[in-house]
């Protein structure tokens, strides 16, 4: 964790103002922030260590994509596929993997490819539904 991120803990007993400022009603709440301290993603509830690891890497990859640090986004997604197969994050990771590849290589065929992979591996996932318009792209 410390290799890739700066971890920060906000204690409900000691830092109630932070809970109010960030509109946190229930714990645990995890947020992913950029290096300027701006919140990009948040999630609630208890996750198993693999689910937590995959979720954090996926949200980090989406921040890197936003920051146009696409090589870093690619590496975060690769780490999910290597270390966290079988987690709930995989369909969304496939979706963003295609998006990052399209950005890196400026080729829309990666969007069509991500749709085909999702249809094959996760036909019932919401991410397969979200990728449906990419069927209009020629392979």
């Amino acid at each position: 964790m410390n290799n890739q991120f700066i971890p920060l803990r906000i204690n409900r007993e000691k830092q109630r103002a932070m809970f109010k400022q960030y509109l946190v009603a229930w714990t645990p709440t995890i947020m992913l922030l950029d290096m300027d301290g701006k919140v990009h993603h948040r999630f609630n509830g208890f996750l198993t260590p693999p689910e937590m690891g995959a979720r954090i890497l996926l949200d980090a990859a989406k921040i890197e994509l936003f920051l146009q640090r696409n090589d870093r986004a690619r590496r975060q997604l690769d780490n999910i596929f290597t270390d966290y197969q079988g987690t709930f994050a995989i369909p969304e990771a496939i979706f963003y993997s295609g998006v990052v590849d399209m950005e890196l290589q400026e080729d829309p065929k990666f969007l069509r490819q991500l749709l085909e992979r999702l249809r094959k591996e996760f036909p019932l996932s919401e991410w397969t539904m979200k990728a449906k318009p990419y069927e209009l792209i020629d392979l």
Partner: peptide
């Protein structure tokens, strides 16, 4: 072992210096 920061401002300073993202965990000690 995870080394947690407790100060938001210090965390942002470190994140800027290292080019790293921040994981912020709101927790209840009870």
């Amino acid at each position: 072992m995870i080394i947690w920061q407790e100060s938001f401002d210090t965390t942002v300073q470190k994140a800027k210096a290292d080019g790293k993202l921040i994981v912020m965990d709101f927790f209840n000690p009870h």
